[in-house]
Nucleic acid binder design. Structure first.
Lengths: 178, 178
DNA sequence: GCTGTTTACGTGCAGCGTAAACATT
DNA sequence: AATGTTTACGCTGCACGTAAACAGC
């Protein structure tokens, strides 16, 4: 039993036909037929009921379909994980020093959850400093206010931060209006 | 990435050498070396630190070792499961009709837990009838009392059942002894 | 110098494609 | 008849083996 056989079987089972399944995995139809036939021979089980169209998994086939998807997913997961381990990625983020540290830490921690194996370096400074670092490739990305960054770099709005004007109570009463 | 590559890698990682690993999976040493080299090339990661003997997995290798064993185990598990599904086994049990149904049901339910995918047929009858059915291969096994079955069949004692003699109270006092 | 890994090269098998036969609706 | 699966057959790639070169202890 090999992974490609599992892939082939899942393709046929999910598309409901050998022809469509073959197209999905980009091989010829007789090839996928032989592949599955060999799998059935090894396991000594009929995996698909070919009598009607669309072909439907047998009891054994249904079980393999379920387990096979998990196996392939495990393989892809570990494969992706190892590729990230390979490049001990370092993401250098420039953060505008006047930004709310609460929002920044929230963004960073959510990024940490999705992307493990990425070393994060945080540098704070003024908007001009950060853009300068970004231009010199000493930073990979910066977190700053809209309009403050150079037009040469792609931008994306992540969140909006409300600004409030705070004035003494008596000042408002003295001026008569806000 | 294929299953055989994972098997090869695990063999080398666990035996601590390419030569020993090759022996475990019964291929030549250069073959397993090439197999793992190809895997490393695909994943773009060094999986083994070959500098010293025994060879030791890198960080990525350790991760693959762990995940790979799970993947292989999943494969073997589903493989074995499908093989049992393949033969919709029918176990025909003859049960001595005078046996305590409580003991019998307890045995059957414990068997059910260990062996799924086995259809159980229960036939009761006298000891002689059951042995007759067993001889004619109309039953696979019988559950009866010791000494009651033919010497041609293998026997095994499963449990012992106490027998009690119940007599009226006045009968005991009249006879003067039990 | 010995154990053990890598490189070089040849080979057999197996997965694949093309084409035709067969089955089912 | 049409769609779809299986069979037949030739081919290419690749996993493997053998032998030699190389490396570390």
């Amino acid at each position: 039993m090999e992974l490609y056989q599992i892939k082939h079987f899942i393709a046929v089972a999910e598309t409901g036909g050998f022809t469509k399944g073959a197209q999905r995995v980009a091989i010829s139809q007789p090839a996928i037929s032989a592949s599955i036939a060999k799998l059935e021979a090894e396991l000594d089980v009929k995996l698909l009921d070919r009598r009607r169209s669309p072909v439907v998994p047998t009891a054994a086939g249904a079980r393999l379909l379920e387990a096979g998807k998990n196996i392939l997913q495990s393989c892809n997961a570990v494969k992706a994980e190892l590729k990230t381990i390979a490049t001990p990625n370092r993401l250098r983020i420039g953060v505008l020093q006047s930004l709310s540290s609460r929002c920044v830490s929230r963004l960073l921690s959510s990024f940490r959850r999705t992307s493990v194996h990425v070393a994060i370096e945080v540098v704070d400074g003024s908007c001009e400093q950060l853009v300068e670092f970004l231009a010199e490739q000493e930073l990979d990305t910066v977190l700053t206010i809209v309009g403050g960054n150079d037009v040469n770099f792609a931008r994306r709005i992540l969140f909006e931060e409300p600004y409030l004007l705070a004035v003494p109570k008596d000042l408002a009463s003295r001026s008569g209006k806000v």
